[in-house]
């Protein structure tokens, strides 16, 4: 890896937004391909952040600040990436469950998934089961990801599981992934969802794995 890509990764990890943007421009001036900058500079930096977050080595603010720096880099690249062959690893439809407006965790998962090259459709907060279904069909999603922060709202996730099972177009084709503070694997089993992960990085890793298996 060239020195400048290494530097982009390091500055991104430190959350240095302006430096990441400047270095990305500099890398382009040096003739490095936009996709290379993304795959070998920005994404590895975010991978390190994800790994350290999973290990409790760093906390939410650093992830958010690093993600902001990553966005500064991808903003520079975006106009140039159009038309370039992006590797499509899979599509995830994500949102916080009906009546739940706590979206920091969901946003972290989205950022981690995006930085792993997944195409993420963010439906926002308090998403009704029907909206997940509609979006999953429209975007031909591999995964529906639901997040809940309250014990009063997590019960709504089972409606999503039921809606997927009842839809011939989606049943067996779309996996339902769940997460959030009060959710655990026993709850996943009780409502018949497919995947539970305890943190944002593991969610992204697992999602990539599941999509790869489904596309295989």
């Amino acid at each position: 890896m060239s020195a400048i890509l290494q530097e982009i990764s390091e500055k991104l990890q430190k959350g240095k937004m302006k430096e990441v943007a400047d270095l990305t421009k500099k890398a382009l001036d040096e003739g490095i391909a936009p996709l290379t900058i993304l795959n070998e500079g920005l994404m590895p930096g975010m991978d390190v952040i994800g790994e350290r977050f999973k290990n409790n080595d760093i906390f939410i603010p650093e992830v958010l600040i690093a993600a902001r720096a990553m966005a500064a880099g991808t903003d520079v690249l975006r106009p140039l990436l159009v038309g370039e062959q992006m590797e499509q690893k899979g599509t995830v439809v994500i949102g916080t469950i009906k009546d739940d407006l706590h979206d920091i965790g969901k946003n972290l998962v989205r950022m981690m998934m995006e930085s792993k090259g997944l195409n993420v459709i963010d439906l926002g907060n308090s998403v009704a089961p029907a909206k997940y279904i509609e979006a999953a069909k429209k975007h031909k999603a591999d995964i529906i990801a639901c997040s809940a922060l309250l014990t009063t709202t997590m019960v709504h996730i089972k409606d999503v599981v039921a809606a997927v099972a009842a839809d011939p177009e989606l049943a067996g084709k779309v996996k339902v992934m769940i997460g959030g503070a009060p959710v655990n694997d026993a709850f996943r089993e009780s409502i018949g969802a497919d995947i539970y992960t305890p943190d944002a990085s593991t969610a992204a890793e697992k999602a990539v794995e599941v999509c790869a298996a489904m596309h295989a």
Binding site: G15, P61, L64, I65, A67, R68, L101, H102, D103, N107, N125
Partner: peptide, 18 residues
Amino acid sequence: IELSAHSGFSESYVEQMT
């Protein structure tokens, strides 16, 4: 104003983290 439903809140929140 319900912040969790406000379109500008998430962005402002990350903005104010530093």
